[in-house]
Amino acid sequence: MEYKELLLNKLNEFKEGVVLEFTDFRDDASITLAPENLIPVCTFLKNDPDLEFLICKDVTAIDWAARKNRFTAVYHIYSFKLSSFLRIKVNLSGNDPSVDSVTSVWKGADWYERETYDMYGIIFKGHPDLRRMYMPEAFEYYPLRKEFPVMGIPGSIPLPSKD
C-alpha cells in the first residue's frame, strides 16, 4: 500500500535505520523501534505535516514469558490524514522493564500507560501520575504477567473487616 512506503521513506529520512523491523501481517503496518528512539520518532510522527498521527488509540504490552527480551510495549496510533493506523513496538529487557512515557507526545496515553503498568509492571519513565488503574494501590502482583495464575492468588486482596 502507498502509505506504508511513504511512512518508511519518511522514517528513513528522519533517521537512517531507525526502523528495526517492519511487518504488515494482514495489512496492519507495524514497526519495531529501539527504546531510545521511541520519543523522537513519536514526536516526528505526530508533527510531520504529511503524516499527522494525532491520536494515540491504545498502549499495551505483551509478555513473551520465555524470550530474552521478555516484554514488548505496543502502541497503536492513528492518523486522520492517512485514514490508517500504525503499530509501534518496543522490545524491553529484564524482569523490571521500563520505557519512556509517551504522555509528553500524546496526552491521551496517560490512562493507557497506567493500565499497562497495572497489568504488566512496566515503569513508564516521566509519566505524570503512574498509579494503578484497576487493581488496589497496594496489590503486590501484576495480573497479566504469564506467571500470575488465571484463578488468582487467594488472600491477595483481603475482604474489608466487619468492625
Binding site: P136, E137, A138, F139
Partner: peptide, 14 residues
C-alpha cells in the same frame, strides 16, 4: 496483610 483501602496517592493527585 495489605491495606487495600488506602487513598493516600489518590488524594495527593487531587
Amino acid at each position: 496483610m495489605i491495606d487495600v483501602h488506602n487513598d493516600e496517592k489518590l488524594l495527593k493527585v487531587l
